[in-house]
Every structure is written in C-alpha cells, then in structure tokens.
C-alpha cells in the first residue's frame, strides 16, 4: 500500500511558481516532453510501411482505451470490464446514423451517448463494489449486444451494418492519436484537481472517504462517465476502418479483457503507465502471431505467466525499482568516494 500512499499524495498546488493555473516548472517541463513525444508519434505513419501503420493504429487504439480505463479504475480500484459495451455502442451509433448525419457529428454524438449511458449505468451500479461490480460490468457488453440483436429482430434490419467513410490509414492514426492526447490532458487535469484527490482516497478506503465528507457516489460516476465517453469515441473513430459492424464483433469481451490486461501490465498508478503496457504487449503479441501463427494463444498464456512471475508490479514498478536501485547505488558510491577522500 505504500506506493499507493505515495501516489495519493496531493499535488502541491500551493508551491506554484506564481502562475494563475498553479502549474509548476516541473509540470511545464513534463508537458513540453509530452508534446514533443506526441509530435514524434505523429510522424510514424509517414515513414512506416502499411504494416507499421497498422501496428501504430493498434497501439493508438489500446493506449486511448487503456489510459481512459485507468482514469476510472486506477484510483478507485473498481475493475471495469465494460469497455466493449461503450466501444461497441460508439461503433453502432456511427454505423446506424451514417445515412442521417455527417460522420464528424456522429463521432460527437457517440461521445454524448456514451456519457449518458455511462451516467445511467454508473448511478445504478457504482454503489455495488468489489467482485459484484466486475461481474456486472462484464455482463453489460453482453446486455447491450442482446438489446441490439433484439432491436434488429424487431425492426427487421440486417444484422451487419456497413460503414463507408473514406479515410486513409494515416488519418485513422492521427484521429486516434488526437483522442489519446485529449485523454492524457484530461487525465493530467484530473490528477491535479480536487476530484482526483477524492478518487485516490476512495481507492485507499471508501469508508474513510465518506467520513471525510466526500460525495463518493458522485465522484465515481463522474469518472466513470469520462472514462466511458472516451471508449465510445474510440469505437466511433474505428468503425469506418472495420467497414462492417455486427454485434458479435463490436461487443467482443476480448476487447475488455485485453484493455485491462494491458493497463495492469503497464501499471495503473501513473498516467503514462498503461502506455508502457500497451506497447510491449502489442509488440510481443505481434512477434508471437508472426512467428507462431498456429500457437498464438498458447504462447500468449505462457508469456502471461512469465510476466506475472518476473514483473508482478507492472512495467512502471520495474522502472521505479530500477530508479530506486540506481539511486541507492549512487548514494553508496558517493559515500564511498567521500570516505576515500576523507581517508586520503
């Protein structure tokens, strides 16, 4: 719990450099680094082949999904398996509405619908906790899938919907990259707001949070809504790339699981944690499916076992351990040098 307690330390707003927003010099530096990294990422599809582009798109999708998942589930410790429910809903809003409204409007609409849907679901279910919430969230995608199937049955429409929007692969990537940037900005803003502070207290002990006078239900619903809105928008952005949307594919439980696994592999107590899970996970899976096409699932299972065995705290934990070790090593080196000079 110690690392969580450290992560839960409030942002020192009072120690600001005098700027109105209270952004410290260190934060400015981090923002600048992030901006440079995003600019570099944006160049990737221009220099890479079609294959590199498709990997970059996978990474962008899962970074957006895993990071937005982590916004809610990271601080609160509520493991949500509902990503596919919102992702699929976003897809269906685009697929179903393409004859009625222009595509950009539908993307916004998907976000709004995702937010409303999450608000209703959140108000109804975020009072339950632990394993009950996990199971409910898993059932949610299946519920939406059944409702859409039923609607198609009643309305007598086709089971698959066609999404014809002309977009190049580069464009898909940039759109998703832009979404990821927004997720990061929002995540950063939450992290330094009162809301983020409240959520970390909820995650550590909900009872304590209630006693502190935090409206826990409200805080959780707000975060759940933000997180789900991004999932719905991601679905809306990806729909034209799939060309054809049907319930079994759009609401695939695999997606929800993959997002959780990637986020946990990276680490959920830092905003950039999920990214460090998504990139190695995507590349590892790519390596396995390219070289052992007949045994992907088997080898992936073995890879999971090794990961859990070697890096139980996620990639972030690994990096922090390494930094700490280096720090200690430097300290001992300094001591040694000091002693040597004193002896001399």
């Amino acid at each position: 719990m110690t690392s969580e307690a450290q992560a839960a330390a409030p942002v020192p707003v009072t120690k600001s450099t005098g700027h109105r927003l209270g952004i410290t010099g260190r934060e400015w530096r981090n923002l600048a680094i992030a901006a440079v990294l995003f600019a570099l990422a944006a160049v990737v599809p221009l220099v890479g082949s079609g294959y590199v582009q498709s990997i970059a798109i996978s990474i962008a999708i899962y970074t957006a999904l895993a990071t937005s998942w982590m916004l809610f589930s990271g601080p609160t410790n509520y493991i949500s398996l509902a990503t596919a429910a919102f992702f699929g809903s976003g897809m269906y809003i685009v697929a179903g509405g393409l004859d009625l409204a222009p595509y950009p409007v539908l993307v916004l609409l998907a976000g709004v619908a995702g937010a409303l849907f999450a608000a209703v679901v959140g108000l109804a279910t975020l009072r339950i906790s632990g394993v009950y919430f996990v199971i409910f969230s898993l059932g949610l995608a299946e519920l939406v899938r059944q409702i859409i199937t039923w609607l198609q049955h009643v309305l007598g429409t086709m089971s698959g919907l066609y999404v014809y929007v002309d977009r190049s692969e580069e464009m898909f990537f940039w759109q998703l990259l832009a979404l990821t940037a927004v997720v990061y900005l929002v995540g950063w803003w939450i992290g330094r707001s009162r809301l983020g502070f409240a959520l970390r207290i909820i995650g550590n002990d909900e009872l304590v949070a209630v006693h502190c006078g935090i409206n826990t239900a409200r805080a959780k619903v707000i975060l759940f809504v933000i997180s789900s809105t991004f999932a719905a928008i991601a679905g809306a952005l990806v729909a034209p790339r799939w060309s054809y949307v049907e319930p079994t594919i759009a609401f695939s439980p695999f997606l929800s699981f993959q997002v959780v696994i990637m986020a946990l592999l990276g680490g959920v107590h830092r905003l950039w944690g999920p990214l460090l899970g998504v990139i190695p996970f995507t590349l590892l899976w790519e390596l396995i499916s390219a070289n052992f096409p007949a045994q992907t699932t088997l080898l992936l299972g073995a890879a999971f076992l090794l990961i859990v065995y070697f890096i139980p705290n996620g990639v972030v934990g690994l990096i922090e351990d390494a930094l700490r070790q280096r720090g200690e090593w430097l300290k001992s080196l300094r001591l040694l040098l000091v002693r040597r000079s004193r002896d001399a």
Partner: peptide
C-alpha cells in the same frame, strides 16, 4: 498462414 483470432483489427 496467420491466425486473426476472429478479430477484425
């Protein structure tokens, strides 16, 4: 041969 694991992406 490659396995697509029944997922469009």
């Amino acid at each position: 041969e490659y396995d697509d694991r029944t997922q469009p992406p």
